[in-house]
């Protein structure tokens, strides 16, 4: 039982990071039906930039929280600039092209970003300076750390903030209108280009924060970490129902929990034939299963195929 609660805690922590990244996928998909293949790389850049800032400031004797906050504050605009650049350079010119064209362009951008990160931050694993001391709290026999609490709290705050923007502001209304029907929204006076750009900016800002959270949780970063994380977050978005914001949040947390429990128990279930090193398989299994059996996801209403 303790192991179960422990895996649950770990799963929810990781899952809330997935959820924040998944929101980025789902927002962009909802508005222009594009899988922003390079979104995982934006998360990666967020983690790396934060790493550089934190490493530089760490010896300065500032309070640790301020150092992390500074790292995040630098990562956010950098990622937003990249997100905006992606949209302008790789996607906007292809908005009316056949469906596969922007996807291929996105794959190209993801390769470019990944290898630029390699050039700047090397191909080695990078250790985040452990400036925040991990404080364990005991719940029964399980442990939750202050870092985990911070990650979950930050994620919830980000999601709440996003929900406020989308459902309570004029900008949000315009975004939802554009997602519903771009053409009609345009006729109603919505500046489509601006709304799409803003969507990318918000998604990128979320990605930056997610990057910082992932980096601090695992304590390490690597130039290839973005693609796997991105893929899992995309799976989470599909699980929840792509284009659906609450769905992305639900899908993210669920996927995190499935992964953690799966990794924790797969040995028991399979008589130790499979071990926790199969953890990464679960996300893909979930993805394939959802797409095959319920392509609309848990909360989605969009139909997988339009005629």
């Amino acid at each position: 039982m303790d192991i179960f609660i422990q895996q649950l805690i770990n799963g929810v922590t990781l899952g809330s990071v997935y959820a924040v990244v998944a929101l980025g996928y789902t927002m962009v998909y909802g508005i222009i039906q594009l899988i922003n293949f390079a979104h995982g790389e934006v998360v990666l850049i967020g983690a790396m930039v934060a790493f550089s800032v934190i490493t530089a400031l760490a010896p300065g004797g500032w309070p640790p929280l301020m150092v992390v906050a500074a790292g995040t504050m630098v990562a956010i605009p950098v990622c937003m600039a990249i997100g905006y650049g992606l949209e302008r350079a790789a996607y906007r010119p292809l908005r009316n092209a056949p469906r596969l064209a922007p996807l291929i362009s996105a794959i190209g951008m993801s390769i470019i970003l990944q290898h630029l990160a390699l050039l700047v931050w090397s191909r080695n694993f990078i250790a985040f300076p452990q400036i925040i001391r991990s404080e364990p709290y005991h719940i029964g026999g399980a442990i939750i750390t202050n870092v985990q609490i911070a990650i979950i709290a930050t994620s919830v705050a980000m999601m709440a903030g996003l929900a406020l923007i989308v459902y309570r502001t004029r900008l949000g209304t315009a975004m939802r209108a554009t997602a519903q029907n771009q053409h009609v929204a345009g006729l109603m006076g919505v500046d489509i280009n601006r709304i799409i750009a803003v969507t990318f900016l918000i998604a990128a800002a979320l990605a930056a924060v997610a990057g910082v959270m992932v980096g601090s949780y695992y304590g390490i970063a690597h130039y290839q970490m973005g693609s796997l994380l991105g893929l899992k977050a995309f799976s989470a978005a599909v699980l929840g129902g792509i284009g659906n914001l609450p769905g992305a949040m639900l899908g993210g947390v669920l996927l995190g929990v499935v992964e953690a429990l799966g990794a924790g128990y797969i040995g028991d279930f399979t008589d130790n034939w499979f071990g926790s090193n199969y953890q990464d398989v679960f996300a893909f299994m979930v993805l394939i299963a959802v797409l095959v059996f319920r392509p609309t996801g848990l909360l989605g209403e969009r139909v997988g195929e339009r005629t």
């Binding site: 899988i35 596969l100 893929l231 599909v238 893909f284 993805l287 394939i288 797409l291 095959v292 339009r306």
Partner: peptide
Amino acid sequence: TLKLRGDYLAIVTLGFGE
């Protein structure tokens, strides 16, 4: 999976490869 729309298929095949 082949009944899925193109971009979903791309991601599913990617997952399969992994």
